[in-house]
Every structure is written in structure tokens, then in C-alpha cells.
Write a protein that binds this DNA or RNA. Structure first.
Lengths: 345, 345
DNA sequence: TTGAAAGCGATACCAG
DNA sequence: CTGGTATCGCTTTCAA
């Protein structure tokens, strides 16, 4: 009974009959060590099941940057694609990315707390109510509430809506409905109204449906719109998931897409290409979003606080990353949607 | 010029005119501290932009468990759903989950190395070639190569295939093709052959297609099958993504699903419910997979090495987690697929 | 080629 | 209520 607890480098040293520095040399493939010694040390480490303590290593070497990603759910393909890009972008910088699928439940705090103790900054969407100061720099992505976060990746949905509607008009549609999400008219919805007004296209309260942001919501929305008996030759949806739900319901109801009704979504998700017909959409490049988000994190981390004195990130240089900040306010980067025309409109 | 580097607790102590222990008390909301003192310390910390060093905290408190998740790509909905469940399961135990989207590229090692320095164990699918000893306990999930990893979550695809084929036969199908993936016949494919043989159903080399594991692969597969001019009233696909691709191509080719050809996938992805008709599939519960994987990690971490002596995980007890190990070999947990019958078959 | 000593930054246990 | 002191486990000089 010599080592009832987790073996440390000292245990290995003792076992191998060397000093702890020699153990470090052996285990980290450093130079200036006799092969025989190295072998002996490696064997001892193996025997004891030694594994270096990460915290101790980090303490002395600099821990490198680790950020947390907050998403509602990775089952939502929008977040999955975003997470994919962020993971790659983070890896490219040598950063770690801790995933937190906060879910739609009420136990957000429980999900969050284990995260906060582990990250240098947070990226993503913070729960509506939780304007709470999380304690670490927070970069919000496409948050409807502009006041949230220390920096923001802003998506110009107005531009996206205009591109989508311009496409519909150009292809001869005039009675364009909108499937919106959330209790209040969204930015996208307001842009939709503005566009119709400018273009002299018909609008009434009947032109809009407001549903939950999900596939089922899309189904419900289409059912409502079709049931209203209004003129309808095109639908703009708040996002692709809703659009796909709407298409599904239209198919069920015997409406042909795009012959009878054109459908346009927003996001540009992969899944839009899996359905038949393929979805026309105002896409945003999530690679760009991810890069922008990490640039903002970087700015927050290096600028805000004089941090990272001894950190040795492995990812090589990434430039000063023009913060794209606004003079007095919170740093912000803008991303522009672009139209991807496919079969549905 | 007093503090050109990152401020430490000592700087705060000096600034506030107290000892460092008092700073700790103030900043961690501990008892036994005068409100006035606390305020002064908090103000000092604020002023200096102090943020505690995580590594140092971890060193003394015990770092808690952090595991890494390896996936080919989160844009593959299978991995996205798996990651979602693993994230939740990890959070429930108070563990951190670092995401690594290794991608299909060749720079896997570059993607991996930043990860390995941060995790206690790895979960997921390791690149085919990289049987490399990653240096940390590794739990492989549904890996076709059984020799990979220190423990395995095993999915009984044979049972899934039988369930799927039994359903097809029960609904009157007799000419059943298979869309397989990978260079060699998969386990699923072998089970398919065996089932056909047992059931006395026709089979020929023409009954099988082997394609890349992607939506486009599914499209190509269906095109090939339809082009062969063989009898065909049902198709079993290696997974849902392939199945959806196949359905898409069939629709394009004017084949009705399921009237002309029934289609069955495997996995039970959400996306299977978005397409029309909805996909019938041999589903696996990814919540179960995630739980099994974390149980195995736990077993590896606590059993294999006498680790985690002082770790204070926040997630409460999770039982000894019956390892479900095999006597002499690597621990293994098995998950059974079950049939979800929907519109496509 | 190897060993001794000095931190890294924070918490915890005891005194006062 | 507040302050000393001893770790925590490892890497990094600097000598030998």
C-alpha cells in the first residue's frame, strides 16, 4: 500500500528511481535524456497508470483558450451547422469549444453552470430572460435582443427578406404571405411589410401567420394559410425549418410547389437540398458567422482585459482581426444573406 | 505602471488593502466577511479587470471531468443528434463536453491535438486508420472496427436489419434491394443477405449497390438500382441519409414511394419525419447511446486508473453504472434498434 | 545527462 | 471576521 490515490509525477519518479524532472523529460519526449532512463520512466508510468494532471499542466504552461457554445438544441439543423463551423474555426486557432445544448427546458442554469467554470468566453444565443451577467465575455449571434452580450454577430435579415421577395416578384408572384415566428412581428416580418408596401403589393392581417419555430409550426402555418381562402401564390417563411414544414403540409393538401404556391425560406440549411422540391432560400454563410464570432471573442479577450499573458495558443497568427466595432458601443460584425434559388420558388 | 500583466488575486488584495484569502471570500460569496470589506474587494477586482485563473482553480479544487466528442461532421444529422444527447448527458453529470468536428479532410491530427490536451477521455468515432493510441481512454460508438477503443457502445444492426426486412416482407414485398456503404459489405449488408436467404427471397449481386455515405450517394444508388431493370419493390438503406437520397431520386424518376417501391432507412433521424412520405426506419435511441457511452467513460475513468481522487463533480450520483463488460475483454454496451413504421414502407 | 529549487495562482485549514 | 501557511502537480530555469 504505497499509492492509494491518483499517482503523481513524484510517484513515477520514485518508482523509476529518478527525479521528477527526469520524468517530465521522458514523458514529454524532450532531449538530453538517456534512452535507457527514458524507457525505465515510461515503464514506471505505465505500471502506475500515471496520467499527468491537466490542471497542473495548464497552470504552468498557460491554459490556452476554451470557449463555450450555447445552443437551444443541436437537433435544430441551424445550430448543428453553426456548431460545426465554430468547432472547425476554433480548432484552427487551437482553441477548445465546449458544447452546451441548453435545450428548451427550464433547467438552463443547471446546464450553464458546469460550463461557466470551464470557459474563457461564451458564444451563442442566451436565453431570452437571462440577460444575467454570466461573468465571462459573451458574444451573441443573431440575437433578436440587441442589448444582449458584450459583442454581437449581426445578421442583416432585412436584406435577406428583400432578396427573397424581390426574387418572388421577379418570377411573377403577387400574393405573398409570410410565416413568422415569435409572439411579436420579427424584424424579418417588418421588412416583409415594408417591402410589400413599397412594391405596391397587397397585404392584410390575413397575409401573416405567427407560429412556433419548428417543423410542426410550419405545418400548422401552411394549414392556416390554406384554410383562409385568401389569394396566395407565394410564401416567405421566417426560416428554412418552417418553410420545409409548410411545403410538407402543402403537398399533403394537394398544392403543388412551386406551380401553385412558391415557397422561400431563410438560412440556407443543408436540409433544404434534401427535400423535394429543393428549397429556395435567403442563405447566410455560417462559416463567415463562425469566423466573425471568434474574431469578436478574440477582441474581447485580448482587448477588454489585459489577459493571456503567457498563453501559448497553437493555432498560429490570425491578425489583429479588425474588430469592426462601433465607435462607442459594443463591437459588432454584420453578415449579409444571399439568395439561393432552387426548385421551390 | 504597477500591473502590466494579467492581474492575479494578489493584485486585487493589494488594491483592496486586504489579504488574498479575503479576496477569495469576497469573490466566492463565502460567509464570514464584512459587507464593507466585500464591497471594497469587489470594486478592486472590477477596477483591475480581475478574472480568476481557471487552471489554478482547477488545480486546487479538482478539475472535474471533461470529455471530448469526435464526429466526422455535425452537418451529418446523425452526429448532430448524437452530440445533442451527449451534451445533455454530460451536463447532467456536471461534465464538460468538448466538441471536435474532425471533418472528412486529412488534417485530422491538427484537429485532434488541441483536443487531447484538454480532455480526460474521448468518445466517438476514430478515423479508420488512426488506430493510434490517443493517450486517453477512448470509448468508440458504433465503430465498424471492433478493435478500436478501450470500450465500445455496440449497436446491434443485425437486429435492426431483421426488423426492417421483416416489416417489408409482412407488407408483401419480395424484391428487396440494399443500398450499402463502404468498400466492403457492411454488417448490415451481411445481415440482409442472411435474412433473404433464410426467408427464401431472391437475391443477386444486382440487388446491392455500394455508394458513398451521403445524400448524394443515396441519389446515385437509387439511380443505379432503377437503371438495372431488375424487379424491385423495396429498398433497405444503410442509413436514413442514404434512404432520403434514394427517395428523392425515385420521386425524380417518377417512382411512387411506397406504392411502387417501399423504402426503409436505419437510424431514426428527425429528418426522416420532414420528408414526404415520412421515412420508415430501424431507429436507435441516441439518448440511450449517449448514456451508455458516458457510463463506459465513467467506468474507464474510475476503474481503469485510480483517478479522480479529489474531483468534486456537481452532478450527483449516477450509480456504479453496471459496466456491462465482457469478462475478459473490453467493456461493451449494446443498443437495440427498433422499427418505426411511417409512410415510406 | 541528471537533479535541486523556484514558482504558476488559487483554495483550505487553522490561528488569532 | 481576517490573515498566515501549506498544498495542488507540474514545468522551468539553473547547477552540478
Amino acid at each position: 500500500m504505497t499509492t492509494p490515490r491518483t499517482p503523481t509525477i513524484l510517484d513515477v519518479a520514485r518508482e523509476a528511481g529518478v527525479s521528477r524532472q527526469t520524468v517530465t523529460r521522458a514523458l514529454n519526449d524532450m532531449a538530453d535524456i538517456a534512452p535507457a532512463t527514458r524507457e525505465r520512466v515510461v515503464a514506471a508510468a505505465q505500471l502506475l497508470g500515471y496520467r499527468p494532471n491537466r490542471a497542473a499542466q495548464s497552470l504552468v504552461k498557460g491554459s490556452g483558450t476554451t470557449i463555450g457554445l450555447l445552443v437551444e438544441s443541436l437537433r435544430n439543423p441551424y445550430y448543428a451547422e453553426l456548431a460545426s463551423e465554430l468547432s472547425r474555426a476554433a480548432a484552427a486557432r487551437g482553441w477548445g469549444l465546449i458544447l452546451c445544448d441548453v435545450g428548451y427546458g427550464t433547467d438552463r442554469d443547471a446546464r450553464l453552470s458546469p460550463l461557466l467554470r470551464r470557459v474563457d468566453a461564451l458564444v451563442g444565443c442566451l436565453p431570452a430572460g437571462a440577460t444575467a451577467d454570466v461573468g465571462v465575455p459573451f458574444v451573441s449571434i443573431d440575437n433578436p435582443d440587441e442589448t444582449v452580450g458584450d459583442a454581437t454577430v449581426w445578421i442583416d435579415h432585412e436584406a435577406g427578406v428583400r432578396a427573397a421577395l424581390a426574387h418572388l416578384v421577379a418570377t411573377g408572384r403577387r400574393s405573398i404571405a409570410m410565416i413568422d415566428s415569435g409572439p411579436e412581428p420579427s424584424t424579418r416580418c417588418l421588412a416583409y411589410r415594408a417591402f410589400l408596401a413599397e412594391a405596391g403589393l397587397p397585404w392584410s392581417e390575413q397575409s401573416e401567420v405567427r407560429v412556433e419555430e419548428s417543423h410542426d409550426g410550419g405545418i400548422a402555418a401552411a394549414a392556416q394559410l390554406l384554410g383562409r381562402g385568401i389569394a396566395l401564390d407565394a410564401v416567405l417563411a421566417f426560416n428554412d425549418v418552417l418553410a420545409i414544414g409548410a411545403m410538407k403540409e402543402m403537398a399533403r393538401a394537394g398544392k403543388r410547389v412551386p406551380e401553385d404556391v412558391a415557397v422561400v425560406g431563410m438560412d440556407g440549411l443543408d436540409v433544404g437540398a434534401l427535400v423535394t422540391p429543393e428549397l429556395t432560400t435567403a442563405a447566410t454563410d455560417r462559416g463567415v458567422i463562425a469566423a466573425a464570432a471568434l474574431d469578436l471573442v478574440d477582441a474581447l479577450l485580448t482587448g477588454d482585459r489585459p489577459r493571456a499573458s503567457r498563453e501559448r495558443d497553437t493555432g498560429g497568427p490570425h491578425g489583429a482581426a479588425a474588430p469592426g466595432a462601433e465607435a462607442g458601443g459594443r463591437p459588432r460584425r454584420t453578415v449579409e444573406p444571399y439568395l439561393v434559388a432552387r426548385g421551390s420558388a
